[in-house]
Structure formats: C-alpha cells, structure tokens
Amino acid sequence: MNTKYLYLILISIFIIGCKNQESKISGTIQKEEAKQLITDTVTLKTTAQSNVKVVEKQFEIAGLDRNRQIRVYLPPSYHTSDKKHPVLYMHDAQNLFDKYTSYSGEWEVDESLNQLAKTSDIELIVVGIDNGAEKRMNELSPWKNSQFGEAEGEAYMKFIVNQIKPYIDNNYRTLADKNNTAIIGSSMGGLISHYAIYEYPEIFSKVGIFSPSYWYSDDVFTFTKNNPIPKEARLFLLVGKKEGQGMTENTEKMHTQILSSNHPKENIHMIIDPEGEHNEAFWKKHFTSAIEWLFTNKL
C-alpha cells in the first residue's frame, strides 16, 4: 500500500477515535451535570436557613403509639461560642421554617431570629415539633370535643416535657431552668400552649398564645380558673379581628379571666390586630414582638 494512503488511513482512525472519546466524555459530563442539577434543585427546595436541622432520630410518643420528628434552630453564633441559650418550644414545625414543608405558608422563625440576633442579645434555640397531620386536633387538645373526638393533649405535652426536653437539654447547650424555657403556638397550638404553662408552671415561664382555639372546649376556662400560675409567668396573647366568629371575644374573655385571678397586668400582654387573619402571615408579623416582650419586656 502506498505510504501516503497508509498515513491518511492512520490519521483518520486517530481523528475518529478522538471524536468517539470526546463524545463519551461529553456524554459523561452531561450526565454528571444533569445529576448535579437534580441535586441542586432538590437542595434548593427549602427556604429554611442553614442553622435549622431536622433531627434524624424519630421520637415515639408514649401512650399514643406513633412517632414524631422534630426540627431544631440554633442561633448563628452557636458553633463559635460556648454560650448556653434559652429554649423555645413550638408546635406545627412543618410551618415554622420552610415553605416547602408547610401546608399554608411559613412563620419564617429562622429568618426572624437570625435578624434579631444581629440587633439584640436575644439568641434562642427553637425546638419545633411536627404536627400529627390527621391527629393534629386530638394531639393539641387536652379536652375532648364531640365533633373531633378524643383528647390526646395530655399525652402530647408529657411527650414534650418528659422526652423531648430532656433530649434537647442533654444534646445542646441550653439554659434548662423554667425562666429560660418558653412555648408558643397558634390556633390549636395556642390552645395547647395555654394548657402547657398552666399544667407545667415548673417547666415553662413564658408563653405565646396566638389565635387560640378557645372555642374547642369550655373546659379551658374552668381549668384556667382552678390552676392559677406563678405571678412571674409571662403571657403574650394575640388575636385578629378577621379570624372568624368568636375568636376575638373568647380571647378577650380569657384575658379578663386571667387578670381577675390577680395575675400582674405587666406580665400579660394582649394584641388585637384589626387586620389579623387566621394564617401564618399574621403570626409571622407578630412573632418578633412576642419574643422581645417575653424575653426582654420590650415591644
């Protein structure tokens, strides 16, 4: 064979081989890029700040035969200091930090507290307990309701006090005494938070009662009357005039009843927002004010 033709054949084979290899590399790169894009997309499907973590451990609720997940917010300075922090317990954790896990918007608790940490000395650990979905109404009331069924709130609060709080105090740098322990919730979460400070005044000294479902059971009024709390306990009540029938009236009724028990006026604060509706946007609006009042007596 002519040397010239042999040379051309060899060059052609080399070029074809290079193109095939380039095609393989390009395909690999495209596949890797696609995989990374999917990973990035999944990763981006959260609005929670980086200092919010879902605890991998599943916690069994004693007496209710079901497991529950919790989410923990740590202050921005947590990993760069040895400081201990107050702890705030909250319900409906799916709605606190991330719009992608929320069914009706998020409170933006993490963004609010990160900003507050920049402008004040308030740095809290927040423990969010996921709600029980179809069991939510039952778990968040210690009183039976003829329409919604059995009360599981007593077991739910024992779960927080006897299982979740010890876990948090043992695994994080907390100020574990009652003066540094608060609880906040909205709607049915407001009802169970009210119950919490009255049932466990040795555990909680601060409570945020947002849009409380006092309509759920009249027993809450009798229970409150029969179980006065320490004078130093601080209660922040919030309700909106656009929330629905009876919401404002019931909250005002409770406010009056608490004051009539000689609880100091300076330790109970109520806001009636004329534009307030029963949603996360309303609770988010007043969250920072509630934290400042509960922990520093500022509004």
Rank of each mutant, 00 (worst) to 15 (best):
N267I: 06
F236M: 01
I25K: 03
N227I: 05
E232H: 14
Q69E: 13
Y200K: 05
L237T: 00
L116Q: 01
S261I: 12
T174C: 10
A233T: 15
D169Q: 07
K45I: 02
S217E: 02
L294H: 00
Q49W: 06
L140S: 02
Q94G: 02
K285H: 07
M157T: 07
A182Y: 02
A133G: 09
S260M: 13
T119F: 04
F14K: 15
A133M: 11
M270Y: 03
L238K: 00
N279D: 14
I203E: 06
R66M: 12
L37M: 14
T47D: 01
K158D: 13
V72F: 08
A62Q: 14
Y195F: 15
A281P: 05
E56M: 07
Y198D: 02
Q245M: 09
D218S: 10
E232N: 15
F282A: 04
E56W: 04
I184M: 11
I184V: 12
D219R: 14
D130S: 11
S289F: 03
I183F: 04
Q163E: 12
S81G: 04
S141P: 00
L124W: 02
I291G: 00
C18W: 09
R173Y: 09
T224E: 05
M1E: 12
P264F: 05
T39C: 03
V54G: 08
K265P: 01
S211M: 05
V87E: 01
I272T: 13
E202T: 07
P201N: 11
Q94L: 08
T41D: 15
K45S: 07
M270L: 15
L37N: 14
Y195W: 08
S23E: 14
S193F: 02
A34R: 12
T101E: 03
V220C: 12
T296G: 03
A176C: 12
S102T: 04
V54Y: 09
Y103Q: 10
K178S: 14
V220Q: 13
F287S: 00
S217D: 05
S26K: 15
F14R: 15
K99I: 07
N145C: 05
R71P: 04
K241D: 13
K135N: 12
L44W: 11
F97H: 03
I125G: 03
